[in-house]
Write a protein that binds this DNA or RNA. Sequence first.
DNA 1: CCCTACCCCTGGGGGC
DNA 2: TGCCCCCAGGGGTAGG
Length: 289
Amino acid sequence: MPELPEVETVMRGMRASLEGHRIISAVVRRPDLRWPLPKDLTKILNGRRIESFRRRGKYIFMRLSGGMSMLLHLGMSGRVTLDASGEVTLHEHVTFTTEEGRCFGLIDPRRFGAIDLVPTKEEDSHRFVSGMGPEPLDPAFTAATLAQSLAGRRAPIKAMLLDQRIVAGLGNIYVCEALFRARIHPATPAGILTMPAIRRLVRAIRAVLTEAIAAGGSSLRDYVQPDGELGYFQHAWRVYGRAGQPCPECPTKGQGADGTDACPGIVRITQSGRSTFFCPRLQTDPAAS
DNA sequence: CCCTACCCCTGGGGGC
DNA sequence: TGCCCCCAGGGGTAGG
């Protein structure tokens, strides 16, 4: 679940309360997450100092003393607790304690999340992140590079943007929101997008992610910030989860002298098994005209 | 290579 | 109240 803004928020929360701490215990209650946890996780982590944090796409690297990094992925339902009392809750599969007296744990009911260890020097060649596309908030992510990645592709732009090899960190919510802001129909074959459309798309992706991070992410069923605060970007969604509701940017009702321009409201369709939300009036389908 | 369908897993919500 | 079906933020793999 958590997409880039939520992962960024989680990472910042961890950084604020854990940087500089020394891990003195790691308790594994369930090793069977998306992949089995490293067998000697506890032994390897014990005694290491938490030096810094880094996010790549939807993954968090926690850099530890001794040149070791712990890689963390939250899957669909993953959450990090930062609980000074150390109280363990249901589905808290791993719990760490620091010398400074703080506990942090991974809660993940669906267990699609993952934890792995990698030498810090080899972070970028870890199989989870090698082959990942550019960071969308990095200057290296431009209309030119995105156009190059989309050239010749016939898959819908929605599916392309969910592909982490094209651009890192986007998920279902922010792809829907970015396509709406860019006025692009989600079913448009990626390769036929014009350069102006791709430029709008890059701007829209940057804007929606930046705004969402500033809001502390979107609080969904499972996700809250590590400090327990709620992100509030879900109130800023314009199309996601709003099927049947009026489009926030179309005139309401009875527009145009003959009424032909009326907006039917936000529509939900299914693309490769996942829900897509869009405004059929503003996000025009090139195949329909 | 490209693309779709399906699978992993648990829980919440709506309809009956 | 209970049950059953659908749905959910991700992503890897198998197969056409």
